[in-house]
Design a binder for these strands. Structure first.
Lengths: 182, 182
DNA sequence: AATGATAGAATGAACATTCATTCAGTATTA
DNA sequence: TAATACTGAATGAATGTTCATTCTATCATT
């Protein structure tokens, strides 16, 4: 799986043939098929694995009983820090989201309201009902809060900028102000 | 080119073989090669075409002599309106940006400081030096301003939300507040 | 007007390559 | 020795690209 992660995140789905993934992993081509039904399944399993890892990272040190603002900033900074520390993970996720896989997954999730994003949804719902954040549709708040983060992470992973930790906190605060209900 | 646009934006690069593009365009497979050197060139040319179209859309009605705020909001709303009116264009651009094509292009542009994005850079530089917007690196301001827009456009094109024109103006204002120097 | 010649655009079958997947054989483990 | 894990050459489907040929429009000749 880490061989697949490296190749796909750097070269894209269609320039990461199973033969090369096997080479990089130091196994025979057929061995992969003992563990994964198909290339599609490998891609999807790897996605879920990364998603779980991210959720674990966010939950670590989560200030359960602090104010809404603290919890929001914790999640925001944890995520951005995770992406900066794991650029390959970030690039893989981005490619997945912008491929047919991601599109259909996104649709399914929103419609069935399942999946890990429910943590975010719960948080924002609390924020809206307590009038802590602006009264906008959840999905818009989500976009307003996390859209910039993806841009920042992308620029960082492409080595276009070098985000210091101070910048991360600064950006988190700026983005809190954008959704805050004043 | 419009056949390529439709297929690629809906199915992704690797599920849009030249043979199907030719079919959709109602021409023979070889005909494409009279106009484009290779599939890669077709993809790149189409990208530049769309980029030009967007630049034209932004420049239409640009309030040259109005305040910085007016010009920012004009650009922001024009872009989002364009993406909503042209969902296929948006999906194509997103796929391009998140593929190896886009990554290398982005790198080249930033390093050589050329390309159409100079309009945006000029605008933000003016904003920073006149203390109208927060004193942050241009690339961060850019992320903060346009990151959310991409999220909104994505959710809209996937039919997860339905953005009314009122929402667009509302969002533009919210995002002006996020970068404004208060 | 009628006929023939030329250009070059379009075609699509053929080719070479790439790739996911399989499976008969080999190595490893219990 | 039996069972399990692994291998990598072989397979066949899919795909980008080429090129000999066809078609159509324009020009030249009679």
């Amino acid at each position: 799986m880490s061989a697949a992660l490296e190749l796909i995140s750097e070269q894209g789905f269609h320039k990461a043939p199973m033969s090369r993934i096997a080479d990089k992993a130091g196994v025979g081509a057929g061995t992969i098929y003992l563990y994964f039904e198909s290339k599609d399944m490998l891609i999807k399993t790897l996605y879920r694995e990364l998603e779980n890892e991210i959720m674990t990272a966010i939950q670590k040190g989560y200030p359960e009983s602090e104010s809404f603002r603290e919890r929001f900033i914790h999640i925001w900074t944890s995520l951005l820090r995770y992406f900066i520390a794991n650029p390959l993970h970030f690039r893989y996720l981005e490619q997945y989201h912008n491929s047919p896989y991601g599109v259909s997954m996104r649709r399914d999730r929103i419609l069935s309201k399942t999946g890990d994003s429910s943590i975010f949804i719960d948080l924002f719902e609390e924020g809206v009902s307590s009038h802590t954040v602006k009264d906008l549709p959840i999905i818009m708040l989500f976009a307003l809060a996390f859209g910039p983060m993806v841009f920042l992470a992308r620029d960082h992973t492409l080595a276009l900028i070098k985000l210091q930790d101070a910048h991360i906190v600064q950006a988190a605060t700026a983005y809190w102000e954008a959704i805050e209900n004043k």
